[in-house]
């Protein structure tokens, strides 16, 4: 990936973060922390890795992203806005009566929302179903499934993990957002999920670990995953919950509580300044 592409993805990821903060603050509820830990993963998937066409959203050959950690859907909505599936006015419609921007994703292939989620632990099995259908129908789309690390505590994840390797679903590429936190605190305090990589390996998966905020590393992990056949693949993306939001980073409460209007207003110029500096640094290095 060249420098311009890295910069472009970083710009997108920054804009999506601002959108997430504005959406959730406007809604007065929602899950900013886990949305932001996934922002670079989603940016790389949507704007570099996945094949999809905003002019033809329900294109059968499109790659699918199953948002298993459904509570983080604001970052998906932000990507849909950024890609042109939704117009900007939707920023104000999160969680509003009758809005398509429900608190958790609802299946809407015309809008690249590939599955109804919100109850954790279901996305991988759903993704397997889409992947199995793809094999039957001889379509070569890939199915990306984004899961939380706390979500790995659900037994259904492992039933699905077993299924995917049994049927050699090499069109499944799962991503674990390893941000270390769940609703009540650190995962390792609630119910330890480590050693994550060994678990997936034992279930017959190809495993990679990357810095989930390094867009180049993410991209190359997705590329290598695409090359490997005969088994499902997982990328364990090490992230920071609330990434980039300064006051929300690594804060358990930021999981399910947006910033107040005042907090956000005060924060926005600081975020802007920090972002500019980071972009400048990219130019120097």
């Amino acid at each position: 990936m060249n420098r311009e592409e890295v910069k472009k993805l970083k710009e997108i990821s920054y804009r999506m973060m601002i959108d997430v903060l504005q959406m959730t603050t406007e809604a007065g509820s929602g899950h900013p922390g886990g949305s932001l830990s996934s922002k670079d993963i989603v940016a790389v998937l949507f704007f570099k890795v996945m094949r999809h066409d905003p002019k033809n959203p329900s294109w059968e050959e499109r790659d699918r992203l199953v948002f298993s950690k459904g509570h983080a859907v604001p970052i998906l909505y932000a990507a849909l806005i950024e890609a042109g599936y939704l117009d900007r006015s939707y920023i104000k419609k999160l969680r509003k009566l009758g809005s398509p921007l429900q608190g958790h994703p609802e299946w809407n292939p015309d809008m690249m929302i590939e599955a109804t989620t919100g109850s954790l632990g279901n996305g991988l099995a759903i993704g397997n179903g889409i992947a199995f259908a793809g094999k039957l129908k001889k379509k070569d789309y890939k199915v990306y499934v984004l899961m939380g690390d706390g979500e790995l505590q659900e037994g259904t994840v492992w039933e699905a993990a077993m299924f995917a390797s049994h049927y050699a679903l090499d069109n499944v590429i799962a991503v674990v957002d390893r941000n270390g936190l769940q609703q009540s605190g650190p995962t390792e305090k609630s119910m330890s999920v480590e050693p994550i990589a060994d678990k997936w390996r034992a279930f017959g998966w190809h495993v990679q670990e990357v810095d989930g905020h390094d867009v180049e590393a993410l991209y190359s992990a997705f590329r290598s995953a695409q090359e490997i056949s005969d088994k499902p693949k997982v990328i364990i993306a090490h992230t920071t919950k609330g990434k980039g939001s300064l006051i929300g980073e690594w804060v358990t409460e930021f999981h399910g509580k947006p910033l107040s209007k005042q907090e956000l207003e005060k924060l926005l110029p600081e975020l802007e300044e920090k972002h500019k500096e980071e972009m400048k640094e990219l130019d120097v290095n």
Partner: peptide, 26 residues
């Protein structure tokens, strides 16, 4: 199951941690 802050069983947990069991999201 990872929701004691919302269900308010967190108060019991503080006083009787040995009889409080968190399963994580399971």
């Amino acid at each position: 199951a990872d929701v004691s802050g919302s269900t308010k069983t967190s108060q019991f947990r503080k006083i009787y941690p040995q009889r409080f069991i968190n399963f994580g999201i399971a």
